[in-house]
């Protein structure tokens, strides 16, 4: 079978494409071939030998749905793709909207609906959690600089300033808040989320929802090393029933379909978990779940193919990952081919 995967940008802010492919390759899927869909000719995954069988450049979702669909249709006419796994937050709405057209071409997806995507959005998370009785930091949705001044009356400083898709900074005063507001707004648009800062330790969960309210699997992880971009560079699987309970509640309530990452902070004052974010796709550390005994990407593909997948009940505690920076050498012809022909 042929599966196309996006997000091969294995940089210091890594996309989940490379670990998703690694997971699929170990999932025992029959005659698996991987097509890498890339937005940039320097996405490191292109240069990793033995990762994807072929790569195609595709237009950014910001170029509009039609050019993207046109390209996907063209690639499919050559490759006859069985399934597409989009792995980046910023492209998910596009792929969710294109899912019926892809289905008409015989390409399967395993994605939430646009409504489900919206419920867990960074701008809607607070209301969702309040309704479900889940601890969540207070927040302000800032659309103008004027809104920043609500921080002093409605929250306290420091506060976390977040983009609707990516980036987050801790602001210690109003000046920093307005500076981060501008920086993020220029890059990711509005609204900007200004969130109460919960002091504590960060925990994450990777999970898979079956689309009917069931949680097919989940593995919680504690970040052991965090980069200056807030990315986990090392982590370890842990056993914390409370994290699994909250994750199951979220998936059951939304009837989530697909991969998901839940980000938590355990308050150092109360010891309680606060749900900071729900990312609507597998995280870049999803391969840890495979190592811990839950091949979630592979299970997702099997569900997309209509197989009955039994939920994972267990995983290995104490399995850890450490990322590394490793130079890959390649001939310039590789860059030439992908950047001029759009395929390699």
């Amino acid at each position: 079978m042929k599966i196309a995967v996006t997000g091969l940008n294995a940089t210091d802010n890594p996309g989940p494409g490379v670990p998703v492919i690694r997971s699929l390759k170990e999932g025992g899927l029959p005659e698996l071939q991987i097509i890498g869909l890339v937005y940039d000719s320097l996405e490191p995954g292109i240069y990793m030998d033995g990762l994807a069988d072929k790569h195609y450049l595709i237009p950014y979702p910001s170029a509009g749905l039609e050019p993207l669909m046109e390209w996907l249709g063209y690639i499919n006419s050559i490759e006859k793709i069985d399934m597409i796994i989009p792995t980046l937050d910023s492209e998910l709405y596009a792929f969710v909207k294109l899912a019926p057209k892809l289905k008409a071409l015989g390409i399967k997806t395993f994605l939430p609906s646009a409504d489900q995507l919206n419920i867990r959005g960074k701008d809607k998370l607070f209301n969702f959690c309040k309704a479900e009785g889940i601890n969540v930091p207070k927040n302000i949705l800032a659309a103008t600089l004027q809104d920043i001044y609500r921080v002093t009356s409605e929250l306290s400083l420091p506060a976390v300033v977040k983009g609707i898709f990516y980036e987050a900074y801790i602001a210690n005063n109003l000046e920093e808040t307005s500076s981060y507001f501008r920086k993020i707004a220029n890059k990711w648009g509005y609204p900007i989320i200004i969130q109460e800062y919960i002091r504590g330790t960060e925990y994450n969960v990777v999970a898979l929802g079956d689309g009917n309210g069931g949680m097919t699997g989940a593995v919680p992880m504690k970040k052991l090393y965090i980069t200056d971009k807030g990315k986990g560079w090392a982590g370890v699987s842990i056993q914390e029933p409370a994290l699994l309970r909250i994750s199951e509640k979220v998936i059951s309530s939304i009837k989530w379909k697909g991969g998901m990452e839940l980000e938590f902070m355990r308050s150092e004052t109360t010891g309680e978990f606060y749900l900071l974010e729900i990312n609507p796709r597998f995280p870049a550390w999803v391969y840890l779940a495979v190592g811990a005994g839950q091949n979630l990407p592979s299970a997702m593909v099997r569900m997309a193919l209509g197989e009955e997948v039994q939920p994972f009940r267990d995983y290995k505690v104490g399995k850890m990952f450490v990322r590394c920076s490793w130079d890959i050498l390649a001939d310039i012809t590789k860059l030439e081919q992908i950047s001029t022909l759009g395929v390699i």
Partner: peptide, 20 residues
């Protein structure tokens, strides 16, 4: 029960991921 100690004196807390 969630604390595991190795022969070298390395402790891993399975519930929080902390090490000592």
């Amino acid at each position: 029960g969630y604390a595991a100690i190795s022969e070298t004196g390395f402790i891993f807390l399975g519930n929080t991921g902390e090490t000592f």
